[in-house]
Amino acid sequence: MTALDHGAQQVVAPEPGKFEIVGKIFAGRPATVVAAFVIFAFILIAILAPVIAPYDALAQSFLRINHGPSWQHWLGTDQFGRDVLSRMIYGSRNSMIFGLLAPTLAAIVGTTLGVIAGYFGGIADRVISRVVDMLLAFPELLLAILIAAALGGGFWNIVVVLTVAFVPGFARVARAQTLSVKQEPYVESAIAVGVRTPTIIFRHIVPNIAAPIVVLMTLWTASAIRLEASLSFLGIGTQAPNPSWGNIIRDGLNNLFGSPWPIIGAGLAITCVVLSFNLFGDAVRDVLDPETNQ
């Protein structure tokens, strides 16, 4: 067959570089670079907490109750004489773990539900969509308080609380994306060559709805950190004596006028991390999901 000679033998577009996307996220965005640096720094602090924390975060001392900042205790001590800086360093572990774990779990659960609803439609869609709508009717914080009140505190309970609070958002985005990707000719063409449904979902639907899900994950990492802090502040998140930025602020309230430094320190840490994740999330969204960046 001579057809080979007639076909165009050159490709039209260049091979895409492997790190193209990473480059685009940072290109021309100094704020994003700073944000990424802050995030990276906090993750390092969380990992290296036992190495860099000057004191044991749980060690109490009646001799040093409610001290102000000093060379020994940069952010002072709290009502039990614990070193606030060390508590903040250990507390960053909670924030980071919840911040990264909850959106990831929520993304897995939410995407699964959303894809099932979107792809199969019918009763599955109706049930899932109604439940999601119901959950979305509550503000996240209220929903989280509701579940936390029912389950009580504790690490895994908080993970469950945050996950449940975030699932509806992911489910809704995944469902909408699945509905649109399902209409794509390449999905129909996979059906036409006889590909089985599970393969179609995992091979042709999920990779093509991943971008908005990843964007949502980065944006909600910030929310998760904020929410965990709020819950801990309200006393239904991380339970004493374990440190968390939320309960450092809560404890700091007892001695607000004696030493405001625990509140200022933890507040600043929360602000920095949440702001950084939001900035980073915006940049990721601009690159991965150019249609929704209005």
Binding site: Y186, E188, S189, A192, R203, H204
Partner: peptide, 14 residues
């Protein structure tokens, strides 16, 4: 088998 109209949409992009 089926050949589709849209040569851009009918090939899975990734």
């Amino acid at each position: 088998q089926f050949v589709f109209q849209d040569p851009y949409g009918s090939l899975s992009p990734r």
